[in-house]
């Protein structure tokens, strides 16, 4: 359901060509990852926030998507300021927080939020088939694109198969524990999963061949050319170059 809310939007970002969205999410993420300045990182976060604003996604959905990141950031905020060496600005008994540690935590927070929001707004808003088509247009090797599409399609099937195997073991009295027997059973389960996955892969390939598959993947999504693509590309180039130049020259 969550996916449908994100993919099924009707915003300017949703109507952008997938190729352009993939390309700029790639450049933006590289620029944001490599930036080393707190203010510039904040700049990237602002760009991501404005992109998210354009997607008009409900805040509730967004927060639910960001929940794992918040947990991760919480552990960083607990450990990094306390363990990072530098000027101590706060002390309580044995615990002391350093200025540099807090700065680093801020930077990590800004950058990770910026990256995730950027991917939610640009990549997660397109159906997986469009993502495949976009990657294909960007000349990403066919095999990699297939791998992505097939993984998306079959991960649920493989999970279902694993659960079925595990259930069958549990119904016959298997209680997982820290012992050799349990490890052996888990090894059997994962081994069997690989065997089944490889058989399934063969059958899926046969089914594809039966329907005339000739190593080329077609898509049904139509993204009519629009001025919006050019405007978006121009703005993105301007912003990325601007932030990189500001960081390299002035800061």
């Amino acid at each position: 359901m969550l996916e449908n809310v994100i993919i099924g939007g009707n915003s300017p970002i949703h109507s952008l060509n997938p190729k352009i969205r993939i390309l700029f999410s790639f450049f933006l993420s590289i620029a944001a990852t490599l930036c080393d300045n707190l203010i510039v990182a904040l700049g990237y976060l602002l760009i991501s926030l404005s992109l998210i604003g354009f997607t008009r996604l409900p805040i509730k959905v967004l927060l639910r998507r960001l929940k794992p990141l918040f947990w991760c950031l919480l552990t960083i905020w607990v450990f990094v300021p306390l363990t990072f060496k530098g000027n101590i600005i706060f002390q309580y008994g044995l615990f002391s927080a350093s200025y540099q540690g807090i700065l680093l935590s801020c930077k990590i927070t800004f950058k990770s939020l910026a990256l995730l929001l950027m991917f939610i707004s640009l990549i997660a808003t397109m159906p997986i088939a469009s993502l495949g088509a976009g990657l294909h247009q960007l000349k990403v090797p066919d095999k990699l694109v297939f791998l992505l599409l097939m993984t998306y399609r079959y991960i649920a099937v493989i999970q279902g198969e694993y659960m079925r195997l595990l259930r069958a073991a549990k119904f016959r009295g298997f209680k997982p524990g820290t012992n050799l027997h349990s490890y052996k059973i888990y090894a059997f389960l994962s081994g069997m999963l690989f065997v089944r996955a490889s058989f399934r892969a063969k059958r899926v390939y046969q089914a594809m061949c039966c329907r005339g598959f000739k190593q080329k993947f077609h898509t049904l999504d139509i993204y009519p050319p629009s001025k919006l693509n050019y405007v978006f590309s121009f703005l993105m180039i301007l912003v990325i170059l601007g932030l990189v130049i500001i960081e390299q020259i002035w800061i």
């Binding site: 399934r200 059958r203 089914a207 329907r211 005339g212 077609h218």
Partner: peptide, 26 residues
């Protein structure tokens, strides 16, 4: 046309329309 025993083998596209159109596009 061959209809496989297990439909999960046959349906590999993310959406139904993509799957049904896979053959004609090919």
């Amino acid at each position: 046309g061959l209809l496989f025993q297990d439909s999960d083998d046959q349906l590999f596209c993310p959406r139904v329309l993509d799957d049904v159109a896979f053959g004609p596009l090919n």
